[in-house]
Design a binder for these strands. Sequence first.
DNA 1: TTCCCGGACT
DNA 2: AGTCCGGGAA
Length: 332
Amino acid sequence: MLDWYDRNHRSLPWRSPPGAPPPDPYRVWMSEVMLQQTQVATVRPYFLSWTARWPSFAALAAAADADVMAAWAGLGYYARARNLLACARVVAERGALPDTEAGLRALPGIGDYTAAAIAAIAFGRRAVVVDANVERVVSRLFAIAQALPAARPAIRAATDTITPDDRAGDFAQAMMDLGSMVCTVRGPRCLLCPLRDDCAAFQAGTPEAFPVKAAKKAKPQRYGTLFWAERDGRVLLVRRPDKGLLGGMRALPTGPWVDSDPGTAGAPFAADWRSIGLVRHGFTHFDLACTVMVADAGDEPVQGEWWPVAEIADAGLPTLFARAIAVVEGMR
DNA sequence: TTCCCGGACT
DNA sequence: AGTCCGGGAA
């Protein structure tokens, strides 16, 4: 694997080339948090702008919460941004990132995977790094028949047996690169794979059958309303509660998200709300269909901030609300 | 369009 | 086991 990595590694903004000194732990940490549940191509531009704007733990720790949340807009899983900031403040206070897996694991936003990845990549420690790519590669290599997520302990144990003492960081990145470029979910390029001769799934002729996954249940459908209230060229925005869905993000006012269309329930004020379109959005555990309603705010006293409509792109709104804005702009 | 993919926290 | 999004492939 290490030999393959030396010749085939991906060059990414947060990486050092094979054999070179490890990258700045700050950059490794930020990239790994951004890469949680998120693909490399999506992360790249965010990583570049974030490290340019906040080049160190100290710089990020000093940032305003609202600026950090707005800069994360569009990346999703917004708890990551709150944890990132909380973690930066802890690290800035104590002086440096811990260099052990256990120390890292104790920080906000760092779970088993991220602790192992940072320990190996930034600090050269031997750690068993298992992300979704590694899960796929290892479950094929050993033809693990047990279904995910129950198979996780077996996959971790198998990964442990093939993790080297030296260059554990390069090994982890090699496995991830192999999973992303060769041992892909569909259409794996087994003819290019350095593990082919050892791969039980390849020998069985069924690489795509692994990893086995447990059946998932259907998502419920919910309905809601997004309110576009305008006054003097400005639109009403609110800040969502820190906990829960889209937590801490700037947003359009919304009513409840329920089993049938709530109409104007939960509107920021009583008015002649007019429906102008529908926006759909999939969350992890339910699908949401929202009516977009508009009204003139007049002199209604309301909570929130009045944001210039011409600058709405700078408000840092999650994708659900960005779609609603596209509907509003399409109506103009 | 629809389907599928991916870690942390509680 | 349930709660947290957004993008790419089919």
